[in-house]
Design a protein around this nucleic acid. Sequence first.
DNA 1: CCCAATCTGTAACGTCCACTACAGAACGGG
DNA 2: CCCGTTCTGTAGTGGACGTTACAGATTGGG
Lengths: 189, 189
Amino acid sequence: MGAVVGRKRGFDRDEVLDQITRAFWRDGYQATSVAGLTEATGVNPPSLYAAFGDKRALFTGAVDRYQATYGRFASRALDEEPTARQAVERMLTEAAVEYTTPGRPRGCLVLSAPELHELRDQAMRAVEAKIRHDVDTGALPAGTDAHRLAVFVAATARGMSSLARDGATRAELCDVARTALSAWPAPVP
Amino acid sequence: MGAVVGRKRGFDRDEVLDQITRAFWRDGYQATSVAGLTEATGVNPPSLYAAFGDKRALFTGAVDRYQATYGRFASRALDEEPTARQAVERMLTEAAVEYTTPGRPRGCLVLSAPELHELRDQAMRAVEAKIRHDVDTGALPAGTDAHRLAVFVAATARGMSSLARDGATRAELCDVARTALSAWPAPVP
DNA sequence: CCCAATCTGTAACGTCCACTACAGAACGGG
DNA sequence: CCCGTTCTGTAGTGGACGTTACAGATTGGG
């Protein structure tokens, strides 16, 4: 079990994966070159390929890491908040913060990369399930269209990510979240 | 005036520019190769370069054409509708249709291409000016934050374009527009 | 202290890219 | 009918890309 012998890796795998994640996050899959990654990380191509695989594998590794760290806030809000309303409110207001945090790329990696359509659908379905649960249990009016509301939340998050990438301020994104939430149906009394 | 002599061009310049527009619209600037454009149009590279210039010029020509045709609906709504509310309502509902019209790429070219940040800002400022006018003339409540509302409209349009690219239906986009409009401030009576 | 195993840097591989040199074909004016 | 002019197709240019062959460096086990 474990490597029996051999020269030790000359770089911190997690640290390098983080730099790779930020590169893909900032520039997207296509615009990020392996040569650029070696320059950003100081790790030469053979070592990158040995540690992570080809460019596609580098990207999926970066996406996995993104979801486990920077993008974790969304599923956390859905898991930890009791109602859909509270979960979406927290998700969107935290998104305003996450999408404009200095020292990292702006916006959301998953919402920006065209090739991650599947992950976006998953996220939207999770929001829809949270809403549907509240409709079923009577916390939201019986007539509420859970799918429609989830699509609207998805649109808001995507719009916020796009605006963040174009340089929108944190306050502007908070206002977008607040305005969007004003379209939320009144809770059952 | 006019060319004095010489062989005539073997293709319809506008028709070819339209195919080029659709290619950039569908795949973006980077993912569109000149080789792909020659295949899509049947026009060889030297003729393309003679007629339009280099790849960057091809792209800006395509964007210009897009704004003059497919994307015209937005500025038309702002120009032709009397109130900001009516203009935005028409803009978003027509966007739902335009973004999902069969036989052409989905979503908006300007909202999808990262390099067109400037054009997006222009569009948002136009919406903001329309709203500010209604606030100044009393058609909207005096406390209305025109900028904040314009950013929200921009977020909605971007969200709709992104959803359209991921395959959202026309009905879903109409619902997003309707829900977003429910956040519009009540008009002054 | 040697050895098999693993990682490292150098330097290249073939492929695709945007772009163009060149020669010939099609045109209208004289 | 020739001529200058403009367009066209072929066939390349140099460069960037993702990926890897290879030889040397470094490790721990025996």
